[in-house]
Design a protein around this nucleic acid. Structure first.
Length: 399
DNA sequence: CCTCCACAGGAAGCGCAGGAGT
DNA sequence: ACTCCTGCGCTTCCTGTGGAGG
């Protein structure tokens, strides 16, 4: 009898290696980042001469290649060092999963002493073990990705950098990566100056750069001749317009490939990419909305609900525009909803804070009212389709 | 012109959870 | 195990702002 997986297993697919076009994959070639690679390489090269490298702070929006470039250079550095028997050691820590000084230290310690377990030991002890390691003349390079997620970052940076003063040989260098530039200003000035000895900014990609990135990826991930030029161009154009984000571009092509695959098409074209756009957009919205605090979800829900109910408003120019809401009426609606759910209700002040955050996430747009409105208020509009957001939050609150 | 409206957003402070110090 | 401390989410209070209306 046929196993139910038999058909899937033997089915002809347009993918050569699907993994190579997921966002998790770190590409071997990083187009348009030569300058950045060169800079990081130059800075880290000091470790090969037994000197401490400058700390680096890397900033750039999501999907601009920060992590890929850093991982790539680190890999090269460690390979080179181990080939020549130079005592350089590197660690990569994603601070989203290790979001406190203690957790970061534990992660690092476990990497350099794989056979020991430090959970339960005091932070000072773990820290000493790490410095001990450097004391033997080793150069340690720690990559802290999403460094803004670390709660007590000041202490962590202070602790790690201070040790360099007491070390005669060896040294500890830090590469901090963040997509939030503002967070830098919240740091203690001393932390800031030591973390940002070198600063790198990764700009977003433009459409033609994204096109080339997608071309390279598609040749390794898809079978030859299965990706139409139109598919790549459209995917690059969409991603460039939205954010200049390579991750979105790659996701578009991946989902488009899956769409083509499920209908047994032998080629991916622009129509598939346009269909994929909806899916990817929903995935992005879903990720953002589901990580929002519950009260903020309710605020967003109130906006979605009202923009479905409210009639298009007349502008002074005569034209009408749909889905424009006043800040005040949204707050009233939010209060009604949260009271109906027997939830606690946040104050109007904090509601404004939430509105600002929602705007930063791109979930809503807002402008301050000009002529034609009494008083000063904000006009708020949903960034995505109202019923989609509404359904999504209804599901989210139910589950 | 003044006053009111309908907000925006800064400052201070409060309660709480969880980590550090002892 | 216990207090102490600190960051975080939030409230309270307050000052600022730009147009409407008298």
């Amino acid at each position: 009898m046929d196993n139910i997986f038999e058909k899937e297993f033997t089915r002809d697919t347009i993918f050569l290696d699907r993994n190579l076009i997921t966002p998790h994959y770190t590409p071997k070639v990083l187009p348009f980042r030569d300058a950045h690679i060169k800079q990081v390489t130059g800075i880290l090269a000091n470790t090969l001469k037994g000197q401490k490298a400058d700390n680096i702070f890397i900033y750039g929006k999501t999907g601009t290649g920060k992590t890929s470039v850093t991982k790539h250079v680190m890999e090269q550095l460690l390979n080179f060092a181990s080939g020549k028997n130079i005592p350089v050691l590197g660690n990569y820590v994603n601070c989203r999963n290790h979001n406190s000084k203690y957790r970061v230290l534990i992660k690092i310690a476990k990497d350099i002493y794989p056979e020991e377990n430090f959970l339960g030991f005091s932070a000072a002890f773990v820290y000493e073990k790490i410095v001990d390691f450097a004391r033997k003349g080793k150069q340690l390079v720690f990559v802290l990705d999403e460094i803004d997620k670390v709660k007590d970052l000041d202490e962590l940076i202070y602790g790690l950098t201070r040790s360099n003063d007491e070390l005669q040989t060896g040294g500890i260098s830090i590469i901090g990566i963040s997509n939030n530039l503002m967070f830098k200003d919240r740091l203690d000035p001393r932390t800031k100056s030591s973390l940002c000895e070198q600063e790198l900014v990764f700009p977003p990609y433009n459409a033609s750069e994204l096109t080339e990135i997608l071309q390279q990826r598609s040749t390794i991930a898809f079978k030859p001749g299965t990706v139409d030029v139109s598919a790549i161009n459209v995917a690059a154009a969409i991603a460039a317009q939205e954010s200049g984000d390579a991750r979105t571009a790659v996701m578009l092509l991946l989902r488009a490939g899956e769409i083509a695959d499920t209908k047994d098409s032998k080629i991916v074209n622009d129509v598939d990419v346009k269909k994929a756009k909806k899916i990817v957009e929903e995935e992005i919205i879903f990720n953002m909305v589901s990580t929002l605090p519950e009260q903020q979800q309710l605020v967003l829900y109130a906006i979605a609900k009202l923009s479905l109910e409210k009639k298009p408003m007349q502008k002074i120019t005569g034209e009408t525009e749909e889905g424009i809401l006043f800040s005040g009426e949204i707050y009233d609606e939010y209060c009604k909803i949260s009271k109906g759910l027997k939830e606690t209700t946040i104050s109007a002040r904090w509601y404004r804070q939430y509105i600002n955050e929602l705007e930063m996430y791109g979930l809503i747009y807002s402008t301050t009212s000009g002529k034609g409105f009494k008083g000063q208020t904000r006009l708020i509009k949903l960034g995505f389709e109202a019923h989609k957001i509404k359904n999504l939050i209804e599901r989210e609150l139910a589950g």
